[in-house]
Amino acid sequence: MKKIKAGRQPNRSVGGDVGVAIVLILFGCFFAFPLVFAINNSIKPLNELFVFPPKLFVKNPTSDNFSDLFLLMSKSGVVTFSRYVFNSLFITIVGTAGHIMVASMAAYVLAKYRFPGSRLFFNMVTIALMFSGYVLAIPNYLIMAKLGWVDTYLAIIIPAFAMPMGLFLMKQFMESSIPDVLIEAAKIDGAKEGLIFFKIVMPLVKPATLTLMIFSIQALWNNVATTYIYSEEKKTLPFALKTVAAGGVARTGVSAATTVFVMIVPLVTFIFSQSNIVETMASSGIKE
């Protein structure tokens, strides 16, 4: 086969490339706008926050809002700030790791094998995905109480392992990007299911795993966790920040700083995972 030159693909027109760039820049401004807005607001001094007519960009950037935020947090009483950060990090890391593991294992067999009950089970997962979470809160609370998990992290972490969206995502990817022949070949060579899963399946769906990681971290990091957790020392960072930010007009600057501060963890993981997504070569080297 003719070697394709790296860089330009042969069937792309220059005019088209310019068009793509223009469309992306125009819409990019629309989508980035409130992010730019939030970051600018968080570093505006008080007099610029209430100027008329309002300005989008900051003139004299200041870190006052952030220092006010940390001051308020450290004064807020019984629990130190670092404790809230630790709680949220703990929930996020354990929950995400478990979710990726548990959901991928289930997704693999649902995507690649047909066994009694497999279709029914998958349909139930899509149904659960569509059922509004608000009405499930009370039955869930009763179950947590029965299990004695109220006011423990288990109540947040364990259900997160089985979030329906994660299984759905992984199953869709495994179905389309893992060739059956690859699994069969590994079996003929004597590989056990566990080995196939870790050494063949998981590396091939790395883009999906990284994407799932983003979803899971977003969901868990932003978890206010007031339903099951009532001890102050177990509460999460978003909850603590919310109480600080809800101080009315005087805290406008602080609340902008809060928005930016909470964003840091999802933003960092997002950049990490997106720069690690590269093409996987699922079918290269296989001739069917």
Binding site: G28, F31, N222, T259, V262, P266
Partner: peptide, 11 residues
């Protein structure tokens, strides 16, 4: 840039 609106739940 395009995912920015969703990245932090509250923006």
């Amino acid at each position: 840039i395009f995912y920015a609106p969703t990245i932090s739940g509250q923006v």
